[in-house]
Write a protein that binds this DNA or RNA. Structure first.
Length: 892
RNA sequence: GGGCAUAUAUGUCAAUUGGUAGACAGCCUCCCUUACAAGGAGGAAGUUGGAGGUUCGAGUCCUUCUAUGCCCACCA
């Protein structure tokens, strides 16, 4: 078989995914063991508007590694894909498109036409990210693909809403909310982010104290009261001034009134502990309708809430006719100018501050009072907290940083605003009759029954996107509230692990816990693995605005999917890490190494076949009930008894089994980087650098040393040696497969005698694929510490000799003789492996003795066990030159 | 303001429960040896951010300081 000398990743990627998918390998049904233990993961649904970024690829790789391994172990696995309708960002996207293409607004075309457009858009572009995901090679079951707005998931949403409403946990109420004037919708606190404003200003405005009350005030300066504000325009909605009751400066003013400039209103001066005496002037203007703190204070003091703004960020008529219709920033400038004209502008200071902005469109948020739908979170919160306290559930990996964050957040959890003033999403199942009375029901028909009339109009608002995603762990498995038990639900819920990013802990993880406990009376998943963040090469967060993002698809093209997956898994320690192309390059090289090692084995594979028994691996198959004896002989009885093999074979078999154990153990602990590291070094160092070199002569047909007596015909021994190396290689490919699916499948298919017999017993009827091969777990009885330490000694000897050769600059072609003084045991080991030592050290002879007896002109070295070695240099090096070289080194 | 991380070779990162500080990339020397130059052999490179402490023994535990990052929070 002719293989090119370089691995072509694209070639391998082209074929296999399609075959895997079409053969049903990704579905749990491929497992024909009805009683097999299950393993399930639901993908955190990416936004329908999104495109793949490194964070996705990291998460997906991790989930796929976990899934592929479990599948190979015989578990009935389900890795379920899907996407999220992402209300705000999708609506934003389509609105923009509408503007660009037709110069229309959503309002121009109406709700129905608009949502139709979004659906069109979804069908056209929604597959983008799914196709990108396919490229990653992840083994998700596409037949179960879900979308948060699928019929069944929508029914689930409606049922959950109705249930919560009926038990009094959903209510409507006017509260102060975050409002995005651009998207014209309310936002939850979690959808608001902070933006630093370095050039902010703090305005000092003077409010005249009511004339009739000035008499009571002693000082001349007290004809006005100065307040400091960053938002002068909101003064039009002020309904009080507050000072701290302990502030001596203002004690005489409490209870007095000021004439609010630019309005005809008088407002009181009140006292409240909240006021910080140190900040500004110590007096604060209070605008209950436009600031969350002022809102709270307003409630405490029964202040009127005066709304002076429209929903688009302009001032309304309450602001007065001079301001009505003015944009908030224009209004700000006008207020300042008017104050200046009145002589009431004391000063303007520079003031760095933090502004709340819309997470999606980055518009500065308005806080205003608005009627919204809310979910009471207290009971669900308590359930989740109790579970955490009592059972440390959910268990986070890494544990330390995330556990406290989760608990703290829950403890301070407030009610959740779930309505959004959008058209894209699940429309709230509430209807109003002509009197404005509300009826919440699963359908209009049922609402009509309740109302006794069909003259009803549905609530315009839709639900927060997270109101559907919090059901994801069970809604994707068929739960819709009407149907509460399905086969999938029974088998795959709770899922085993959720793999996601830190910023999603509150938005999603915590809410999923609450939803699953509440609605299906189960935990949504066992473990939570929180990935680190992929940073750019300067250690900065990747972001669209900075343009420093690394596109996974480009990396796939350049280095191959498998190399990228290895890089990601190898970096998955739970900590953030900086992206480095060099890292991928080294795994690309690793892929090439695997390719070439296989190539070498195939060049010498005539007569050989993959046969686990040849290296003592018993085909004992495990399933969830126990051990299925399957053509299993005692490895120590077999005609290839491991005990009778050479030390180098015992050694590599030991290393293989140890590596298998390590990999399994690491993956059980989510220590992906450990697994990658073990595999990399086992394959490259142990298998390629040493084992292949050790057995090369034995398995090769040729030798360039024509005088060698070892040149053999194809004997049975040679065929067995070939069988062993091919089998070890095949086991290695299985271990590597979860990380490097394409390469390993490509090569596995080329190995001799790879067929469905190598599958885990659960998949014997499927077409041959490494995907379903039995995953090596490592056999303790094949771990041979003695062989390992003896080989270690041999390697050390060879390395030492090579070291001397390099240092003395002995030409590779020059043969040397090696004198060794060692104890009997060591001598015995070296004698038994003389041929291999001679070959790998390029030596002619080894002279073993209890003590060294060598010419003076010898290079010497000592091994860690005390054995001494010496290499006579006479005739090998030019002593004159060597002296010069050493002198030069000293000079340096 | 509170919380949580991080600081280890030139760079990016590892290092189970405290037990000889490693990998990859880069760098230096030699080698296109018939699996692989995306390779092979060898090598140099670290007072583990600073200062204390506990211990036979500390990168690891404690105290403190410094720097950086992230999250949360209502300072106008």
């Amino acid at each position: 078989m002719e293989l090119s000398t370089q691995y072509n990743a694209k070639e391998a990627e082209k074929n296999h995914y399609k075959r895997w998918e079409e053969s049903g390998f990704f579905t749990p049904e491929i497992n024909n063991d009805e009683n097999a233990e299950t393993y399930s993961i639901v993908i955190p649904p990416p936004n329908v508007t999104g495109s793949l970024h490194m964070g996705h690829s990291l998460q997906h790789t991790i989930m796929d590694v976990l899934t592929r391994r479990k599948r190979m172990l015989g578990f009935r696995t389900l890795f379920l894909p899907g996407i999220d309708h992402a209300g705000i960002s999708t609506q934003l996207m389509v609105t923009r498109q509408l503007k660009d293409e037709e110069n229309k607004t959503p309002q121009d075309i109406g709700r129905e036409a608009f949502t139709e457009k979004v659906w069109e858009w979804k069908h056209k572009y929604g597959d983008t990210i799914l196709n990108q995901i396919r490229r990653e090679g992840i083994s998700v079951d596409w037949s179960r693909e879900a979308f948060t707005m699928d019929e069944s998931l929508s029914i689930a949403v409606r049922n959950v809403f109705v249930a919560l409403y009926e038990e009094g946990n959903i209510y409507r109420g006017a509260r102060i909310v975050n409002w995005c004037p651009n998207d014209k919708t309310v936002l939850s606190d979690l959808e608001v982010e902070d933006k630093e404003k370095k050039d902010g200003k703090l305005y000092y405005l003077q409010y005249p104290i009511k004339e009739s009350e000035q008499l009571a005030v002693s000082s001349e300066r007290r004809k006005t009261l100065t307040v400091a504000t960053t938002r002068p325009e909101t003064m039009l909605g002020d309904t009080a001034i507050a000072v701290n009751p302990n502030d001596k400066r203002f004690r005489d003013l409490i209870g007095k009134t000021v004439d609010l400039p630019l309005t005809n209103r008088e407002i009181p001066i009140i006292a409240d502990e909240y006021v910080d005496m140190e900040f500004g002037t110590g007096a604060v203007k209070i605008t209950p309708a436009h600031d969350p703190n002022d809102y709270e204070m307003g409630l405490r003091h029964n202040l009127p809430q005066l709304n002076v703004m429209n929903l688009d960020g302009t001032m309304n008529e309450e602001a007065g006719k001079d301001f009505n219709g003015l944009d908030r920033y224009k209004a700000r400038r006008k207020v300042v100018a008017d104050f200046e004209e009145l002589g009431l502008l004391e000063k303007i200071d520079d003031h760095e501050m933090v502004l709340p902005v819309c997470e999606r469109c980055k518009t500065v948020i308005e806080t205003l009072i608005s009627e919204q739908w809310w979910v009471k979170m207290d009971k669900m919160r308590d359930m989740a907290l109790e579970l955490k306290r009592e059972t440390d559930y959910p268990r986070f990996t890494p544990h330390n940083p995330h556990t406290k964050v989760y608990t703290d957040w829950l403890e301070n959890l407030r009610d959740w605003t779930i309505s959004r003033q959008l058209w894209w999403g699940h429309q709230i199942p509430a209807w109003y009759d002509e009197q404005g009375k509300v009826y919440v029901a699963k359908s209009k028909k049922e609402a009509a029954k309740q109302a006794g009339t069909s003259a009803l109009t549905q609530e315009e608002d839709v639900l927060d996107t997270w109101f559907s995603s919090w059901l994801w762990s069970f809604s994707t498995l068929g739960w819709d509230g009407d149907t509460t038990s399905t086969k999938d639900l029974k088998k795959f819920h709770p899922t085993n692990v959720i793999v996601t990013a830190r910023e999603i802990i509150f938005l999603w993880v915590s809410r999923m816990v609450m939803a699953a406990l509440k609605f299906v009376d189960e935990r949504p998943f066992d473990d939570v693995y929180i990935t680190g963040t992929v940073l750019d090469e300067n250690g900065l967060r990747m972001s669209k605005s900075k343009g420093n993002g690394v596109d996974p698809l480009e990396v796939f093209d350049k280095y191959g999917v498998d190399a990228t997956r290895m890089t990601l898994a190898g970096s998955a320690t739970g900590a953030n890490f900086a992206w480095r192309d060099e890292k991928v390059e080294s795994y690309r090289n690793f892929a090439n190494k695997i390719w070439n090692a296989t190539r070498f084995c195939l060049m010498n594979a005539e007569g050989a076949k993959v046969d686990p028994e040849s290296i003592g691996i018993c085909r004992k198959q495990h399933d969830s009930i126990g051990v299925i004896e399957d053509n299993c002989r005692n490895p120590h009885d077999s005609k290839w008894a491991v005990e009778d093999l050479s030390i180098s074979n015992k050694w590599i078999i030991s290393r293989l089994n140890k590596t298998a154990k390590d990999v399994n153990e690491a993956l059980d602990k989510y220590a992906f980087h450990v697994a990658v590291d073990k595999l990399y070094h086992f394959f490259w160092d142990d298998f390629c650098d040493w084992y292949i070199e050790l057995v090369k002569d034995e398995i090769s047909d040729f030798s360039n040393d024509t005088e060698s007596k070892d040149q053999k015909p194809k004997t049975e021994d040679q065929i067995l040696a070939r069988t062993r190396i091919v089998t070890i290689l095949e086991q290695s490919l299985r271990l590597l497969h979860p990380f490097m699916p394409y390469l390993t499948e490509e090569l596995w298919q080329k190995l001799p005698n790879t067929n469905a017999d190598l599958h885990n017993v659960a998949y014997r009827s499927a077409d041959a694929t490494i995907m379903l091969a039995d995953f090596p777990v490592g056999d303790d009885s094949l771990i041979d510490e003695k062989a390992e330490s003896e080989m270690q000694l041999i390697f050390e000897l060879i390395t030492k000799i090579r070291n001397i050769r390099a240092e003395m600059q002995i030409k590779p072609s020059d043969k040397i003789s090696v004198h060794i003084a060692a104890n009997d045991k060591t001598q015995k080991i070296f004698t038994e492996n003389e041929a291999q030592i001679l070959k790998l050290a390029r030596a002619d002879e080894i002279i073993l003795a209890g003590e060294l007896d060598v010419p003076e002109a010898s290079a010497k070295g000592v091994l860690t066990n005390g054995a001494e070695i010496a290499i006579p240099l006479e005739g090998l090096i030019d002593f004159e030159k060597e002296r010069d070289r050493l002198q030069n080194q000293i000079n340096k």
